[in-house]
Write a protein that binds this DNA or RNA. Sequence first.
DNA 1: TAAGCGCTTGCAAATATTTGCGTGATCCGG
DNA 2: CCGGATCACGCAAATATTTGCAAGCGCTTA
Lengths: 329, 329
Amino acid sequence: MTRRLAEVAKKVGVSEATVSRVLNGKPGVSDATREAVLTALDVLGYERPTQLRGDRARLVGLVLPELQNPIFPAFAEVVGGALAQQGFTAVLCTRTVGGVSEADYVHLLLQQQVSGVVFAGGLYAQADAAHGHYELLHERGLPTVLVNAAVERLDFPQVSCDDVVAAEIALAHLRALGHERVGMVLGPKDHVPSRRKLEAFQAAGGDPELVERAMFSLEGGHAAAARLVARGVTGVICASDLLALGTVRAVRRAGMSVPGDVSVIGFDDSALMNCTDPPLTTVRQPIDAMGRAAVDLLVAQIDKAVVPADELLYEPELVVRASTARVRA
Amino acid sequence: MTRRLAEVAKKVGVSEATVSRVLNGKPGVSDATREAVLTALDVLGYERPTQLRGDRARLVGLVLPELQNPIFPAFAEVVGGALAQQGFTAVLCTRTVGGVSEADYVHLLLQQQVSGVVFAGGLYAQADAAHGHYELLHERGLPTVLVNAAVERLDFPQVSCDDVVAAEIALAHLRALGHERVGMVLGPKDHVPSRRKLEAFQAAGGDPELVERAMFSLEGGHAAAARLVARGVTGVICASDLLALGTVRAVRRAGMSVPGDVSVIGFDDSALMNCTDPPLTTVRQPIDAMGRAAVDLLVAQIDKAVVPADELLYEPELVVRASTARVRA
DNA sequence: TAAGCGCTTGCAAATATTTGCGTGATCCGG
DNA sequence: CCGGATCACGCAAATATTTGCAAGCGCTTA
C-alpha cells in the first residue's frame, strides 16, 4: 500500500499537498474540499495517524456550574490531571452570570467534536425543563459521565458521593454531642444530592420542619440559616461548605457564637476550611478518587468498552474541627 | 461548481458585488434585491467560506499554573465569562503534578487551532530555560495576552496588577501601625511579580534581609514565615493570600498571635478571606477589570487589530480586616 | 552514505470575494 | 418637465483565499 496520501489525493482529484493540509487541520483549504477529503479518507479506510489529526480532537468537556465554590476548582484539577495523563485535554465550561447556559455548552462541545463530557453538579435548577441536551448526548452516543448529578431517567454512568451516609454521619455526630434541635440548609429543591440528604435526614429521625433551602452561596446560606436560627436550632447541617460559612455568619449576626450556641457542619471539605473561623467541621467527599473514577469511566467509554450505567457511590468521612461542640446545658 | 458567489449572482441576475454586499450586511442594497439574494442563497445551499482560524475553532486557551489558589479559579471565571460573551470558549489548561507542562499545553493548543491564548501567572519557575513556547506563539502570530506574567523580552500585550503600588501600600499600612521590623514572604526567585514587590519594598526602605522565598502554597508560606518570625519581625507582607494563611499558622506555631504579636498582609483578596481566622488584611487585585481587559486585548488581536505590546497596570487597593493591628508597645 | 518514500511546506498562479467609484435610474420640488 | 439629490448596482481594481508544483525534510532501507 504505497503512497497512501497520494492515493487519497487522486481519488478526490486534488494534490497531495491539499490532502496533507486537511490531515493537519491547516488553514488554506476550502470547506468543500476539506469535506471531500475527509470523506474519501473514511471511504478508503485511511488510518488517521495518531492524535487529533483529522479525527475527533482529544478534548473532553468538563461542565461545572460555577467556580466560586472551591470544591469545583478542586474537582477540575483532579479531573484535568487525570485526563491529561490519558492524553486528553479538558475544556472547561462554567456557567457565568448572563453567560452561556449548560445546553449551549453541550452544543458547543458537540461542535468541537469532543470525545466525551463530564458533568459535575449538573443542571438541577431546571430539573424538568432542561434534559434535552442530555438526551442529545445520549442519542449521539457521546461518552458521558455524571458526577454528583444524578439524572434518573437517563442511563449514563455516574459517580457520586453517598449522600445518605453523609447525612447520617453528620446527624449522628451532632446527636452524640447532645443536640436535639438539628436543622438543615440544603440547595435548591430539585438538587438531587440535597434531596437525598433530606431523605436520609428524615429517615434518621430528623425534623423535616427544620429544613431550609438556599442558592449555593455564602449569602444564600446566611439567609436560610437565619430563619433556622430564629427557630432555635442548636445544630445545622449544610449541603456545602459555603453554605456552612454563611450559616456561621447568620449565627453570629443573631448575637450567638459557633460552636458555643450553635454547631455547624459543612459538606465537601473544600480547601481552606481549616483556616476559617472557626475551623469547619465538615463531611469530606473523596474527590480525588471520584475524579479519577469519572475519568476512568469516561475513557473506557471512549475506548468503546461497554460501561454499565450504574452509579458508583463513594463513602464520605467526617472531619471534626471546631465548628461543632457539645450542646450548651 | 466554481465561482460560487458568481453562481448565486447569475441565478438572481445581479453582480457578484451585490451578492457580496448582501452576504456582509453592507448597505447599498435594496430590500427586494437583498431578499432575492437571500432566497437564492438558501436554494443553492451556499455556505460562506470560513477561514479556519476565525470560524472553525472559536476556542481560546487559558493557561493557569494551578487551581489551588482561589485567585486562579476566580480569574478563570472572569475570563471564561468574558470570552463566552464574545462567542469564544475557554480551554482550561492547568499544570498538575506529573501532568502536562506549560510547553506541552502550548503545543496542544496550537494543534487545536485555538484563536488565542491567555496566560495567567506564567512559567516563572524556569525563567530562563523555557521561553521557547512563547517564541513559538510569537512566530506563529497567535494572539496572546499575558496576565501578571511579564516576560520581558517578548512583546505580547500584558495586563498586570501594579506590584510596586501593592508593596508600597502594604508597607505604608504597617508603618502607620508602628511596625518597624517588617518582613516579606515572596514566591520563587524568578517570579516577576515577586521580584517587583521586592524592589518596591527595598525602595521604600524595607530591609532586604527580612525577605524569604517560598513555593506558592500554604505550607510554603508556613515554612518561610517561620524563619522570619524567628528573627523577630512584627509585620509580614505576603505575595499571596495562601502564603499569608501559612504565615498566620507559623506565627501561632511559634506561640504568638495574629495580629496581637505579628501583623500579616496578604495579596489578591481571593474568595473567603473574610471568613478566615483572623479575617485577612490584604491587597486586592482588581481581577474583574483585569480579566476583562485581557479578553478585550485578545479579541482585538484576533480581529486583526494592531494591539500595542504594552503592559497595562492595574491599581490594587488595600482591604483592611483583622490580621493587622498596632504594634505592641 | 546514498536513495527512496511518505509527507510537509514555500511559493506563485488561479480563483474567489470585497470595495471604491462611477453610472444611470428614480424621486422630488420647483 | 427640468435639475439635482439620492440610491442601487455594476465595473473593475484591490484584496484574500485556495491550490498545485516542486523543493525539502526526516526516516528507513540498501
